[in-house]
Structure formats: structure tokens, C-alpha cells
Nucleic acid binder design. Structure first.
Lengths: 195, 195
DNA sequence: GTCTATAAGTGGATAGAC
DNA sequence: GTCTATCCACTTATAGAC
């Protein structure tokens, strides 16, 4: 039950975000959303056309938040390798998984172009942002080749997404950290000299 | 509808495997299983106690198959790095995702110790198997340090699991391959000399 | 072993009163 | 804007006949 100080649409969106994160789209019912939001049936259908419409609003908000959190780590002032490490080590609710990435395993989300778009765009933006940082690092001598920026960026994002899988499977956040440690260990061989 | 030459329990298990892979546990109903298996309601409940029981049989079979497929690539004769590369590049139904890993995003699977066990055990076995190969590679000089076998193994598994996420998100298997390319590129710096 | 009947509850929504 | 009533299909079974 979200704060009464939030508007009903906001409470509905926040409840949907939490449920999508925890149970996915298929596992989330309008009824569950209404109960979590403290809103009635009629109220929900007054503000949103239905479950897909509400899910879209929730997914967009979650995607935007993820982007902001990633940018906070990636947009810093340090060297390329330091910013990538900051991103990899940023605080996460590891056992809950990635609120955006988990949607890729949801058949109904993937079947809808509208619902799928924010997911695709977010992960794509992240890869591009990381690739740019790697490229920059190579140009500045903070990273030394041979290193393909696009490939490294994809590996970084994949390690994070897969780290969530390992953590949830084992029931321990440590598995995520171990995967990140392994990636940073491999990356260490490509650190350039500080000038 | 599976081959009539399969026993009814087998057809039910195979149908469940396919549906779990595609739609997850939450998204799979007994009715859908029965239709895919060409079996009636009564038939299904005669052979299995219910949905969780049938899912357990399906998950166990899928886990065993995954293990066999991984071992086929990892148990070969080549150098450590060649076997890891063989594992990473083995043929996969990339856009369908990992039939075991996707279950970690299923709330009902994670909530059940019985259903979760085969998932955890499979990914854990895989990590251990890879770590052993890395260790062996270091001892034989096929790989050169500094390289923590456990961490590298976790990164390899995470890259694969995350590669599926990237591929499904973008709708293209190429995203998986790019993530794998990035990992192999990083690993290349640790290849020892062939004696 | 397989089939049909039955059932209480949920899923996802529409209609109309307040 | 929010509430209650109503709807039909689906979910996840159980019971008992064949």
C-alpha cells in the first residue's frame, strides 16, 4: 500500500513496477495491483485502459530510473576503467534481479512491440554508452588494446545480467560479485598507464 | 502434439519442458500442457500429482540435458582455452533463452525448494566444471595468470546467461555472439604458449 | 489408464450507479 | 473519480464412471 500522498495513478504505477519486478508480467494480475495500490477496480480502469497500458507506464518509468542510475556511475569524472568498475560495483538489489532485463523472459512482454521497446532501448543505450567510454579510454591511453569497444560493452552488460541469474539461482548475492570480479580481473590486463 | 510412440507420461513431460522454456512456470497451465501432449485431464492427474510434480520431472530432465550438452563441449581433448571457447560457441537456440537459467526469474520456482534445487545444482556444477578446466589450464601453461579460476568460471557462465538477455531484448542472436566475442577477446590475453 | 462432470476461485474486463 | 455488480473464460484441481 503506497503513500496516500501519491496520486492514484502514481500508486498504481508504483505497485505495478514492484509486481512486475517480483513476479513478471504474466504473474501479475490487475487484482494484485489494485490491492497493492489501495485502489479499486473502477479506479484502475478509469486511469488506465487495462493491464498492458498500466504495464507500459510502469516499464517506462523503471527503464528511465535504470538509465539514470547507470548514468550516475558512468558519467563520472574518472578514467574509463574506473567508471566501468563503478558501474559494475554500484549498489544493487542483486537478489531481486534486473527490473528491465527480467522482462526479456516474459513471453507476453516480448510478444508486444510496445512493451518490448523500452526494454530494448534501455539495454541498447547502455551498451552504446559503455562502448563510447571504452573508445574514449583507448584514445586517452587509459585502456590498451587490442579491445573492441562494442564487444567489451556487450560483455559488461551480459556479465551483469548473467550475474543476477547466478545470484538468484544460488540464493546469494556473492555469486554476482564473483562474476564481476572475474570480469574486472580480465579487464585489468588492459589498463593503460596513468599519465 | 508429441509422437504417439512416446508414453503418455513422456509426452506430458516433453510438453511441459517446451512450455516452461517458452512461457515459464507461472505462464504454463495444466490445460495447455494437456493440449500440447494430447492427453486428457484425468490422464495427467493419473500420472502426476499436479502441476508442481510434473514441472519437477520436466525441470530435472531439462537440467540433465543441459549438463550433457555442456559436458560434450567441455569434456573434449583440446587445451583449456579451446574447450572454454567450444562451450561458449556451441550451437544454441539463442533467442529461446536458457531453459534452466530462465527459471531463476520465475517467482513460483524460486519459492519452492524442490523446483529450485535442480536449477541451482546445474548452474553450480557448470561453474565448478569450468573452474576446474581453468585451473588445469593454468597448471599446464595453456593459460597464464593472474587468473582466479572461480571468478573466471562465474564470468563465463554469466556472459552466457546475460547474452541470452541481450539477444532476446534486441531480437537478434548476434547480440549473444558479440558478448561472447568480447569475453574471448579478454581471455586471449591469457593464452599461454603451445608447447 | 482415460474420460466426463463438477467446482471454487482467479483473470481481465465492461456497465452503470453514486 | 470511485464503487459495486456482472461477465465469461481459464486455473487447478477432485470424483466417479467406463
Amino acid at each position: 500500500m503506497y503513500s496516500v500522498r501519491m496520486s492514484t495513478p502514481d500508486r498504481l504505477i508504483e505497485a505495478t513496477r514492484a509486481l512486475l519486478w517480483e513476479r513478471g508480467y504474466v504473474g501479475t494480475s490487475p487484482k494484485a495491483i489494485q490491492q497493492a495500490a489501495g485502489a479499486g477496480q473502477g479506479s484502475m480502469y478509469h486511469h488506465f485502459a487495462g493491464k498492458p497500458d498500466l504495464a507500459l507506464a510502469a516499464i517506462r518509468r523503471t527503464a528511465e530510473e535504470l538509465r539514470a542510475a547507470a548514468e550516475a556511475a558512468l558519467g563520472g569524472e574518472g578514467t574509463a576503467d574506473a567508471r566501468i568498475e563503478a558501474y559494475l560495483r554500484r549498489e544493487r538489489d542483486v537478489l531481486r534481479g534486473c527490473p528491465v532485463g527480467r522482462l526479456t523472459m516474459d513471453p507476453d512482454v516480448m510478444a508486444s512491440d510496445e512493451l518490448r521497446a523500452p526494454v530494448d532501448e534501455t539495454l541498447d543505450w547502455l551498451r552504446g554508452r559503455l562502448a563510447g567510454i571504452v573508445q574514449e579510454g583507448l584514445e586517452r591511453g587509459e585502456l590498451t588494446g587490442p579491445l573492441d569497444p562494442e564487444a567489451l560493452a556487450a560483455t559488461v552488460v551480459a556479465t551483469v545480467q548473467g550475474g543476477y541469474v547466478l545470484a538468484r539461482s544460488s540464493g546469494s548475492a556473492a555469486a554476482f560479485d564473483t562474476a564481476v570480479d572475474g570480469l574486472l580481473m580480465l579487464l585489468a590486463a588492459h589498463k593503460g598507464r596513468v599519465e
